[in-house]
Amino acid sequence: MLCRSARLSMALLAFPKNQTPLDPAGPQARHIEHTFLLIFWITSIVYAIVIAVLAIGVLRARSREAGIPAPFTPDPAVEKKAARIVGGALIATVILITIMMVSSFVTSHRTAALADQPALRIDVYGHQWWWEVVYPNGAAPSRVIHTANEIHVPANTVIDIHGTSRDVIHSFWAPNIHGKKDLLPGYENDLTFKVDSPGVWRGQCAEYCGMQHAQMAFDIVAQSPDEFEAWYRQQLKPAADPSSPEAERGRTVFLSQACSLCHTIRGTIAGGTAAPDLTHLASRSTIAAGALKNNVANLTAWVLDAQKIKPGCRMPPNLMNSTDLNDLIAYLETLQ
């Protein structure tokens, strides 16, 4: 009830709820929201009191004399009374602060509770300006999958995002699920959480990391355990051989162009590691770290000149005639 009304007062107008701490999708975010609301109510009330006292005080004490009245010494009785009130206010302050402090400690403790439970570990590497996602699954290299910008997790399972950075500092933040955690070069940080139920939530890099910090988003896709299992098995597969002739040609284009220097497509000789793994590109809903929907038009535009879409990003423009380009896109579209 309290939460509801507060959430309303916070939300004001309706707005997309897939990237906000005010619509928790997991226990961590929920704990945090409770502390948030506690602080919200306490501070709002205290603020109201302070301003009320000020307003009344000014109105009552306003000088009605013409011009500037002479300085005076208020009588000791009044001063004593004032002193008592101030003292009381300070005691109240101390108490309220202690309450908020304790609540915040408790929440920290609760949100960290999953840290020592068995978890599905997902390695996330920050890059300028995309997210490399690796599922080691504690298993043999053959069972490790590489993907980018789209993190699939089984719902209601403990997830451990094990993060670091390949270049500058980034920050991993999906507010509906948990607070943020920085990915720092030279450090490895863990963020453990659960997602209640299937759904898609948006996350975004929250540490200024240069030119395209603004377009470094990712999706967290929570699935029922068997859906997740299916997805995982699909991702394990190398890229299927192209069926249509233009896709066939597209692959040749891909391999002959610079693409393979940076990108990997398992099942081909393309083994670059500087850029997102494209083995299952077509299975992803966005490209370029959330900058674009994943569709033919956008892919074409992106491959032709990524700099137009994401100025400064680490992918160069690629000059090629339209047939090559169309074939190439046709091929990329097959990478389910």
Binding site: V53, I56, V58, A61, R62, F72, V78, A82
Partner: peptide, 12 residues
Amino acid sequence: WLATICTGKVIL
């Protein structure tokens, strides 16, 4: 400050 204001002769 609030105490000063409430017990003073405030000129605006």
